[in-house]
Simulated scan of single mutants.
Amino acid sequence: MAQIRRESLAEQAAGLLLGRIRSEEWVLGAKLPGETTLALQLGVGRSTVREAIRDLAGRGVLQSRQGSGVFVTALDVADDWDLVLRRADINAVIEARCAIEGEGAALAAERRTPTEIRAMRRALKSRDEHRSGLEAHVDADMVFHRCIVEASHNEILLGLFDEFVPRLRAAMIDMLRIRGEFGSDADQDVHADVLDAIVRRDGEAAQALSRAHLQSMRDAL
């Protein structure tokens, strides 16, 4: 039989501290009172306070600085990616892809290596070979775009792509299903044009083509 989960004292203490931070009792960058003071205020032991602080530090709200104390680094707990993406509408999704992939294409044109060009060409060929099945086509498309972002040599952009785009696989499949078409010659040609711009080191064209492709998808929806 399932049981109702009771919060531990540390979880309750973390919730009380978070409530005080949300109410701006402590502003961003403020130093919290010492453990002894907080323990008295919350009616718990110092070990419970330490555990509560560790919990909020792990969630990005607090930061412990050796020899200095505990400081407020955020005024609330950030939503996790999955929750953010579930809330996002199609326009927001495409805008985010424009930002990541557009800039990735521009940087790839400046920084790509011969090995990365070969990888992009293989991915483009695979994308061409997977035009008949919607899910396989989306997967091949993601591989192609990831090759481009990887060639940007920007670890943050690649990290955003790896964190963001694979989680949107189902949403992208739904988008194309709503659109009613995928894998056309014109669509494949646009991707080939992006690669051509990267090969000839035309970052401006690579970025513009990448963004225009995604924006046309949004407009069609």
Rank of each mutant, 00 (worst) to 15 (best):
I94R: 08
D139V: 07
N91M: 11
E129S: 14
A78N: 13
E116I: 10
A99Y: 07
E101I: 12
V93A: 09
T113I: 09
I94A: 03
G102H: 10
A106D: 06
I100E: 02
D80N: 11
R127L: 15
D139W: 03
L124S: 04
F144D: 06
D89K: 12
A88K: 10
W81A: 05
D139E: 12
M120L: 07
V143S: 09
V84C: 05
L107V: 01
R146K: 09
H153G: 06
E129N: 15
A106N: 01
I148L: 07
D79F: 04
R118H: 02
W81S: 02
E129D: 15
E116K: 12
V93P: 06
I148R: 07
V70E: 01
V138A: 03
A96L: 13
E129A: 14
I90S: 04
R146S: 01
E129T: 09
I117W: 00
A74Y: 10
D80T: 09
N91S: 13
V84G: 01
S132M: 05
E95H: 12
R87F: 03
A88E: 01
A119Q: 01
E129V: 02
D79H: 07
I94H: 01
S132A: 00
R112D: 00
D128F: 10
D76H: 12
E129G: 13
P114V: 02
A140V: 05
R121Q: 01
G102R: 13
H137A: 03
I117Q: 08
I100N: 05
R118P: 00
A109R: 15
R118V: 02
H145R: 14
A78V: 14
V72G: 06
R146C: 01
A92R: 14
D76Q: 12
A119W: 04
V138H: 07
R86Q: 15
D80S: 04
R97C: 02
D80I: 08
A151P: 08
E110K: 14
E150A: 15
H145K: 14
G104S: 00
S126Y: 06
A78Y: 13
H130I: 06
R97L: 01
E150F: 11
L85I: 14
A96N: 07
D139L: 11
T115K: 06
A123R: 02
A78G: 13
A109I: 15
A119K: 06
L134E: 02
S132K: 08
I100H: 04
C147T: 09
R118M: 03
R122M: 07
R146P: 01
C98Y: 12
R86N: 14
V93T: 13
D141T: 15
V93I: 15
C98G: 11
R122F: 00
A151E: 08
H137K: 08
S126A: 13
G104M: 04
N91K: 14
F144E: 08
R146Q: 06
V70F: 00
L83H: 11
R86G: 14
V93N: 08
